[in-house]
Design a protein around this nucleic acid. Structure first.
Lengths: 251, 251
DNA sequence: CAAGAGAATTGGTAAGACCAAAAGGAAATG
DNA sequence: CATTTCCTTTTGGTCTTACCAATTCTCTTG
């Protein structure tokens, strides 16, 4: 098992899609411009037309281009670095963002959530407690708990953004690993923190909900720091002594 | 010109992709399950294999499935309603989310931004003032202003999320239209609001930065409300009298 | 029973063909 | 001369066939 256990290779269309995205990023094709015809791209890139079609569809699904039948593919927006493969975010950045955003979401949810939604959240808190006892580390209910609160804001944009942050964790192997390690080292407290959030929601107290959610995620950041130290020490043991001091001093 | 001026039709692969997503949502293929082979899907859906490939690539780009060469396509995650086409977010939801998130981002930026970044933000405020005088309604600098603040948080996840919210506006024709209308009706105030945010940032005052940004976006929401009423009246004039009262009473 | 070689399955890509929509220009028309 | 109409060209949409490569299955073999 390497760092990336099951990397799926091949996929020629991905190479072409990446090349085209770089062309877009270079400014060669500004917004509104038309890309060369599929047949032209096929010959210039030495691939078949189906491959070109696949690449363009990849861009289309990401909202980068718009294909008009009989006319061509037109640039819709320019790619940012988050569109490029290998885009990773630190677990700390992710959790800091969640601290801010989910704190506000909890505050809003305190004023918007229905009693039924609060009941559902309470069941999720219980589910989290059960999962923690099993110790096989399922964080599914944890995710659902946070997303249920986001949903209770009745604001699709907020829910969408917070769900996006959770998904980002999965795209970053490092972040996922760190979270897993943090979870195994620190289990009990999260139950109390979750119930604190729920209580604030039931009391319809936005400020308390925000504070409880922030406290919870601040605790997560702490455990991430702890796990980072652990990981650093592990690596230091495994590698040369020279690296040891450096990793231990890193927060 | 109808409500959707340039709807691109056809695209058989999209129909198939949607069908497959519905299959995933139905639970028929749980996470980790393998989809039928491309050739099987082609025959069962009465399409060609290239079309099946295109549909699967659409799912792959969205992170719904993972394709393993020589093995098959495996379910990676289940689709939510935000994955389905026709997913639109209200301009109000969008701005409410921005009010909460960008408020926090401004507060964080007040403690993190470098002097150079603040200078850059100041230049953007000036650019916004210039664009407003031209009255041809370019909101490019406005976007840059908000994104510069998000970037000043030094947190990629926060920047990414806020940029995502801005991009969502483009995907929703209704939201874009409403914003355009709101802009044309209400120009002057935004300059003062932007300078207020900048001043708070320069003073390194997180609370003031949050408050200024929230005030600014609250103002945007107000102008959206105003524009909504305008639009309602316009439509009412254009359509039958019977509809008139109904639209006018809608907030 | 285990290990290895071969066959079957599956995705990856190419090439060619034909259809339908769109765009551009030429000809007919007012 | 301007406008409209129609036809040709371009372009994307889809299908079919074919072959290659990676994987998986199966059956033989020691």
């Amino acid at each position: 098992m390497s760092d990336t256990p099951d990397k799926t290779q091949d996929r020629l269309y991905q190479d072409l899609a990446r090349s085209l995205m770089e062309e877009l990023a270079s400014g060669r094709y500004p917004i509104g411009a038309r890309l060369p015809a599929e047949r032209e791209l096929a010959t210039s890139y030495n691939v078949s037309r189906p491959t070109v079609r696949e690449a363009i569809i990849a861009l289309e699904v990401q909202g980068l281009v718009e294909v008009k039948v009989g006319s061509g593919a037109y640039v819709r927006r320019l790619p940012g670095k988050e569109d490029l493969p290998g885009f990773n975010i630190t677990a700390f950045e992710l959790t800091e963002a969640r601290l801010l955003f989910e704190g506000e979401a909890a505050a809003l949810a305190a004023t918007q959530a229905s009693d039924e939604e609060l009941d559902g959240i309470e069941r999720l808190v219980e589910a989290i407690a059960r999962e923690n006892q099993q110790a096989d580390g399922a964080e599914k209910s944890d995710r659902e708990f946070h997303l249920a609160i986001a949903r209770a804001t009745r604001n699709t944009a907020i829910y969408n953004a917070i769900e996006h942050l959770w998904d980002l964790r999965a795209t970053s192997p490092e972040a996922a690993l760190l979270h897993e390690k943090a979870r195994s080292a620190n289990i009990k407290p999260v139950v109390d923190e979750h119930t604190a959030v729920l209580t604030a929601l039931r009391n319809r107290d936005p400020g308390a909900a925000r504070a409880a959610m922030r406290a919870h995620l601040a605790q997560v950041i702490d455990s991430l720091l702890f796990a980072t130290e652990e990981r650093a020490i592990e690596e230091a043991r495994r590698t040369a002594q020279a690296k040891r001091a450096r990793y231990q001093s890193a927060p």
